[in-house]
Nucleic acid binder design. Sequence first.
DNA 1: TTGTACGCGTTATCAG
DNA 2: CTGATAACGCGTACAA
Lengths: 367, 367
Amino acid sequence: MKDVAAALGVSTATVSRALKDDPAISLATRRAVLEMAQRVQYRPSAAARRLRTKSTSLIGVVVQSVGDGYVGEVVLGIQGRARDLGYQPLFFAAEGRTDLESEALDVFLSEQVTELIAVSPTGRPELLRRAVAEGMHVAVINADAEVPARFFGEVTSGTISGQISRIGAPGRGEPMCHIRFDDVAAGELATTHLAGLGHRAFVHLRGPNVRSGLLRLLGYRQALTALGLWPQPVLTAALSDMGSRESAVAAFLRQARPPVAMVAYDDLAAVAALRAAHQAGWRVPEDLSVVGIDDIQFASYTNPGLTTVAQPKHELGALAVDALLTRRGAGAPVGPDGAEEVRVLDGQLIIRESTASARPVTREEAQ
Amino acid sequence: MKDVAAALGVSTATVSRALKDDPAISLATRRAVLEMAQRVQYRPSAAARRLRTKSTSLIGVVVQSVGDGYVGEVVLGIQGRARDLGYQPLFFAAEGRTDLESEALDVFLSEQVTELIAVSPTGRPELLRRAVAEGMHVAVINADAEVPARFFGEVTSGTISGQISRIGAPGRGEPMCHIRFDDVAAGELATTHLAGLGHRAFVHLRGPNVRSGLLRLLGYRQALTALGLWPQPVLTAALSDMGSRESAVAAFLRQARPPVAMVAYDDLAAVAALRAAHQAGWRVPEDLSVVGIDDIQFASYTNPGLTTVAQPKHELGALAVDALLTRRGAGAPVGPDGAEEVRVLDGQLIIRESTASARPVTREEAQ
DNA sequence: TTGTACGCGTTATCAG
DNA sequence: CTGATAACGCGTACAA
């Protein structure tokens, strides 16, 4: 910057102003400065600017793992929107380790990052708490806290207590913004699609004991109840791995008769069902229709291609950035009353080859 | 820092020294400082330190897309090793857009990043050139430049010219470090595994016109040649998408007879083969054995699970960090003679369910 | 062993 | 409209 100033015979203050489009600057000098800056390959020192202004255009992003493709898409949404607003994301993969989460926060604090996005945090909200305590603005995408196992029992068989309906709303009044996929609606959408195909025998392969698992199950039940088809079976795997899920499905298929319509917790669970069906000699979609939730990249590569309810992954990321950065301009801390704010996004049904009509096509339909 | 100094009645210089384990400091004051820093929640300002020392502990990482899981694993390797060495990765997803690549470089330069890792750059090496021109140290993981289509013809049918053997060595003498997966060895490993299973009828589903595509094909040919089984068919898809590949495989299967052993360019290509086989009524692995390359996360979820040659993704990332950071200590610019340096990592065969013996098990083997 | 003083590259304030 | 100047938080050469 000194060089530019010297070369033009002006002061560094002038250069600084010209570069940031200060209104109090003559057009002539501004142009001269810009051109010279170009010629000298001037690059502003982010460190110096940061030191002086005490504000970064960095936005911290903690993810659990970046390996599973789902997160990757969200991250792309974040980066895209951040770019548009002149911000640069600083990523940190915590891999579910508390010590790494803590380290991430330290790094962000040292870098004077004030904006934080947590993508699908699964553990305790301790990290986020500390972050807001340190004065950060935080947005959370698809927070997925654990949930007592008995809640699943209540949804499956008993009456739904008030506790459960309240569980859809995350947070405990922490001043942070939540961006969420509508899990209940997704469960409903998957189920009604199947029902619309003429199915009357359903199964749900449920997920882990976390909020999204409960909510998707709830959607399944609500759709079925509305259709007068409740109750229908719900499968629980011992663990969330392929193996457990495959055996759960296999056990079910042994005592069932086609056609059956399955709503899986997510695409991975759906893949387990696909494998179990194949092993058991059930054809998909002729004998077993299955729909997943999420639309991970691989959903279109399964055999057959998986019908699923897609999460708007890009939008989730973009919206989190918006929530952080636009709020700031308005000056309001978070939400209208300073409490948390929640934005919910809907999924979209993607029909591929894993779902089909419950009965063979009749002659009329075939025409 | 001022606070800490004031609270203890010492100068900031003393605090600074105590914090960085300067030998010229008394044990007593050091302990006092450390404790007080703890109490006051002192966090060093990365910006100020950076401005003063003119060096960052940031390492820039450009990836194309972070969505496909493969990159995610490499990224984890990078972050892990960087952490150990006290560095923080700064990621940028370029999505194959030249303007974004350029912007990434600008960001890195503004942040005074001197270390750069490019993960699987596919386009022209322009970005990397500019980076070294700007004085950066750069390491490249699996550079995969385009390659003339006729080279594939030479490998398949004609004699292998000198050009091709030279193509294995990347770069044009640019002073940068290359970390690479041994594509030739991977092709060989996949092929010999199938041959070891008793197969005599092979196919290769080849990849795009890039270096790795050519090299894997070369490995396929070399293994077969060594076994006296060359020539064998090579399939070329119109594009790199599922559809083109499926039709290429379908067309082949129509005029072939089981059992056939296939070496696919990568796991995605192998998945296309799985789908085509299913459509055509060929059983895997009974009629068609297929092995992929890469071992993406989804390889274990296909139906049946995919036998593949795994890339050491973590190591690739970790090694790139090492190459950058340890070299620096030694003071040597790059490699022994200031030219490029290449490190090649081997793949590992992962046997799942997509490959089987060429003939039905005999009575002796069944026992 | 510790304190003093300066400068890294910017921007904001104040005067001109 | 522009210039001089101070300050952001830290590291370090030099003096004590």
